[in-house]
Each structure stands twice: as C-alpha cells, then as structure tokens.
Design a protein around this nucleic acid. Structure first.
Lengths: 194, 194, 194, 194
DNA sequence: AATGAATGAGTCTTCATTCAT
DNA sequence: GATGAATGAAGACTCATTCAT
C-alpha cells in the first residue's frame, strides 16, 4: 500500500525534517544529534540505523533537499512554451519553493558555503544536474544569453533569487506574483543577449 | 617608530589572520582554538587576552574583514566621475578585493549564512554602513536604478560578484580587466532604469 | 528483586559516594570531575547523565547527606519518653552518625562554610527541616530551653557536637557511650532553662 | 617614621585586605589572583613579590587574621579580675571582633574547614597559641571547668560564639551588650564545674 | 619594585557514537 | 528495528605563574 510505503521509513523522514528545522535556527554545529533525536521523537541510536554518521545525515539531507528544489523548479514544465517563458516559469517556481520552504533555503545556503560542499562535490541532486543545469546550458549555447560560462550564470541567477527570497521572508509579508516577476525581470535583463 | 606601531598588536593580528585562513579551509567548528593558537604561534590562553570567546573572535573578525572590504571598495573614489563610472569602480574594486583575498571571500560568505549573522545583526563595518550602502541608496532614490528596495539591490549585486569571483578563483586563472567589466556589465544591465 | 532495585541507580550512587570521599580529602576544587569519574569507575561523561554540573552534583550531595543525617538523628524516636530523654537520643544519634561517617562530617562542615550554602539557601534536607528543626523549636516555645532564638540554638548545639566528633575522630580512638553523654550534658547544661 | 613604616608595605596590606574581602564573597577557588590584583590596584605580578604562591598568600592571610583575632581577644586584659570576669571579657572581645570584621569571621571558618588547615597544621597565630589557648588550659587544670579535654573545650566555645556572631550578622541588627553577655552565659553554664 | 602580556597545564563540559537489552 | 545509558575523545576556557621591560 501507499500508506505503508510512505510510513515504512517515517522515522527516517522525521529525522531529516528535524535536522532541517534545527539547522535553520542553530546551524550545523549548534545542532547535536541528541537534539535531532528529541525533536524527531526517536532515540539517539535510531538515527544510526538510517545514517552512518552526522556528516552522512547532513550530506543526504542536502541531496534530498536539492532534489525537492529541482522537482519544484521543473513543475508545469511545458516544452511548447518559448525559452523565455520557460525561464520565467523556472525562476518563479524556484522563488516559490524558497518562500514555502524557508528552512530549505537557509539550509542550502549554509551547506553550500560550508566545508561540506567542498568535501563532497560529487554529492548532489541527480534531477538538478540532469534537467535544471542543462536547461541553462542550452540557453547559453544557443545564444539566448550573453556568452558567459554556465558555471558563472548559475550562481548569478541564484544569488539574486536567494537574496530576494530572503528579503521577502525577513519582511514577513506576502508579495504578489508581479513582485516575483519583477525580480526575475532584473535577472533576465542582466543576462539576456544584447 | 613605525615598526613599533605596527608590532604593537602583532599577536592580535596574527590570531585574526590565522583564524581567517583556517576557517576558509575547515569552517567555524572545524577550527579549534588550539589550532588557531598553533597557527598564530601563540599560546591558547593568549587568544583570550584579545578576545572574550571564540564567538567574539569570529564576530570581530567579520567586522574587521568587512571593514577592509569597504576600504577596498572605496579606493580611488572620485566625486567628479559620473554615477555609472563610480558604480563600475566600486564593482571592480570589490571584485579585485575578493580575488586578492580569497580567504576573506569564503569567510564572509560563510559568516553571512551562519547563525552568527542572525545573532549579531548590529555587528557590522561602520565604513560599509556609512559609505557603501548610502552610495547605492542614492542610486535608487535618484532614479538611476529600477525602483527596487535597497536591501534587495545589495544582495543581488553581491551575489553575482561573489559568484564570479568564486568561479575565477576555482579556475585559478588570472583574468583581464575586461573580464571583470563584463561581469559588472551584467549586473548594471539588470538593475539600471529602463 | 531487591538487588535490582538497589542497583537501578548504582552509578549515580557510586558517583555521589566517590565525590563525598574525595572532597573529604581534597576539598571541592581539589577534586576534579575526572578524578570522581575514575574513583567511581565510570566515564567522565556519565556524571553528566545524572547531574547537570559539578555545582549541581555537590549541592545534591549536600541535600542527600543531610537527609541521611536527619534519618540517623530520628532513629528510635520514642514519643513516650520525656523531652530531655529524646533530646539526649537525638544528640547521641547525631554524634554516632558523625563517628560512623567521618566523610559526611567533613563534607557538611565544608559545604556550610562555602559560598554554596549562601548561593543555594533553599537547597536542604526536607526531613531535617520538617522533623529535626521543629523538635528544637518545640523545646524553646515550651520553656525547656533558655529563651534564645532557634536559629542560634541550632548552631550552638551543632558546634559542640561537631567539635567533639572531630576531636574523637582525630584521636582515632573508640570512646564509650558515657563519653558521648558527657558532651551532650555540657550542651544540655548550657541551654536548659535555669 | 611610623607612616613610612606602615606605608612601606602598603601594597602587601592591600593585597591581603582584597583577598580577605573577595574570599568572603566568592570563596577560595572563586577568587582568582587576577581579581585580587584588580581589587588591590596592583599588577598581577606584584602579588608574587610579597607571596610565593596563592597557597602561601592564603595561609599567611590566615595567620595574620588569627593574630588580629588574638590581639582583639586579649584587649583590656586585667590580671586582677577574677577568672570568670576575664573569661567573659575574652568572649565579649571575640564576639565584637567577629561583628566588626565579618570578612574575617567567614574567612577563618572557611579556612578551618578546608584542606588548608589540614595541610598546614603548624601555621597559626603565635599570640593565639601562647596567650589565648593557655588561658583556657589554666581553667581546666585548676578545676574551673568540667574535666574535659582542652582541645574539645576550644571548639565548643568557638562554635557557639561563631554561630551567634553569624546569626547576628545575618539579621543585620545591632544588639546590645546584654545580648552578647547572654550568649556567653550559655557557654559558661555549659562548661563551668558543677 | 612594579608591570601585565604571555604562557600552557588543567578544568569542566559537550557530543558523536556504540552496544547491551 | 528501537532504545538510551554509557563512553571518552576533544573542545572552549581559566588561571596560577613567569619574565622581559
């Protein structure tokens, strides 16, 4: 059954969720395993049934969170739309994901700026690598964007979106769809050819 | 004597420099005080003559590093130049600072994405707050930029520059002045009015 | 099983006993947690499962030791005896407790003359406060003793008994029941009415 | 000159006074040398011109404080008075010393119940050993007191007086001469022959 | 004599991890 | 699978003491 399937690793999920929540507020090293256990309502030892170590837990949390981000970005993907339209859809989806998952936003940023990212460069979301990145590479290779390296393009785009999401979250206000579009327009104006 | 003056807090400086260097590679909690002491060639206890705690050390390191960034950004400031020219100068200076101080770049990003930044929001570089931020605010208020909130503009600009600097550093190549200008152009195109 | 029950917190007891023994010889700050752990045959970290801190450990040790003193004092309590007879019983019991638990004697005195006693005035043995103190208060209020404040009476009585116990322990001799009674007689003669 | 003489070791006195004051509030191990230095307005290193170590400082402070106690006890000594009268004078003097020097009272009690007293049993006030103790020994040997060991008599007397002094200090009230005499009467009644 | 920066051994405490139940 | 008591290595920090000035 589906329920069965979802439930069969419910403790694993609880652990991951608790880790995400706690790291948002206290950071990696401010979040001891004992606290994760308590927050997830499991015994400390139980965490080690699902994860080899705290390091593993965090890296796996990163991969899964990034995967969810990729899924969100790819929502309502419509090949029939123009590249620009699909670009805007990607951006809006990403923005909305951050707004709806602030813990994920904080965690992802923290992770990417920590030694973890350098120590496990190969650990990343398959969906992101296989679907999201290539979309932008396509844009560059086909002359949609200025002729800049794709590895530069990505952070540029992300930097602005993340900044916007953080800002909106800090203000604790709900913004309209147009606000989001305005931000994406800034990005688009910066990178589009000509 | 000049030497005397420079030396007068040489241990404090050595501690700050060692902290910056080690945090770049190992992160906040991967850098024990004992290691900082060893790297700075001082006794562990000596650190506590200059800083109340590890937390204080890191926060003060942030403020001083940011201050240096502000100084670098403001270099060769020329009121007679156009706003756009000064904007480009700011950007190029900031970019060069990152390229010449990769540890600072990594540290600043790590700090801003850590719980520290949230716990000590008032701890920041006076020079940055009084000179750099107002320059951009001026641009917004005088219709140079799109009408976006200054707190959104800053991260947008920084995000792209940081991404570019990180990318160039990772490649371990030396780029020409034109490469830098190209990046700044992307930013400018995105945020300028019209 | 009884053994099971006694064992159920055997480590906690071992820690308390070791603390008492070591403090007797080396004082509070001459007794590091590591030494307590070693003496109790537990890991250093284990102490922190049972006590929040060294301070807590010492305060709880005080309360429990005082409780045992109170239990000892109240042994063979017989309401049908005269007040004077019960007073002598109390005194003899207390004296014997000190003789049989020299560590407790030294520890209690050290504690009461340390900043601990001032910092945690509310931490004390319930049994002592509810049964022992009221017995002496009764004596005062019913004209058995001179009309002195009960808070003055207690220390007076205790001072003499403690001095006697310390003296006997230092001599390392075994004294007869009459010796004890002689000391109690001194106290009684001093405080009884008339 | 006298002033010269008093002044010539003014720093030594300042250190001793500061130590006494701080230990009263924070205990031996709650009083670091650095704090003593600060309170005495001297450099940390200066303490080591006058005392070999912290341990030495405390032991010397004990001897000097006890010496002052002995001087106070012996004030207005009048050989022509009866033994009982001189006994009462001794007691009242001691009591007054405690009331006027609460720091000394706390310090002396703390010291005597610490490992110091056991580690340096030979370190004590000469005046106390040569004048005060013999006075009480005389009383025992000449049948004034009950036939108890002098080493038991001393603590008995002291215990009551100290308790009374502590009690009065805690109440922060000023008591009349008669109150003091009442306490001494309790002691006297307890130990006098018959 | 006096200073106070510097030292580093030693302390309390935390926390990732293990393992018997 | 699940538990949580127990572990002990490692960390932040303190503080008595020294010594160049």
């Amino acid at each position: 059954m589906n329920v069965q399937l979802e439930d069969c690793h419910s403790k694993r999920r609880a652990i991951l969720n608790s880790t995400l929540t706690l790291i948002k507020d206290y950071g990696f090293h401010g979040t001891p395993m004992s606290q994760i256990a308590k927050h997830a309502h499991v015994a400390a030892g139980t965490i080690y049934h699902y994860f080899d170590s705290k390091e593993t837990l965090i890296v796996e949390l990163y991969v899964e969170t990034k995967e969810k981000l990729a899924e969100a970005i790819l929502m309502n993907y419509d090949e029939t739309k123009t590249y620009k339209e699909r670009f805007f859809q990607f951006m809006i989806n990403q923005y909305n994901f951050y707004i709806n998952n602030p813990s994920a936003l904080v965690f992802l940023e923290q992770y990417l700026n920590s030694p973890f990212a350098k120590n496990y460069p190969e650990k990343d979301s398959p969906l992101f690598l296989e679907k999201v990145i290539p979309f932008f590479v396509f844009g560059i290779e086909n002359g949609v964007f200025k002729n800049i390296d794709s590895r530069l393009l990505g952070p540029t785009i992300k930097g602005t979106l993340v900044a916007a999401a953080n800002f909106r979250l800090a203000e604790q206000m709900i913004y309209s769809e147009e606000d989001i579009i305005e931000v994406v327009q800034i990005i688009w104006d910066g990178i589009k050819k000509q």
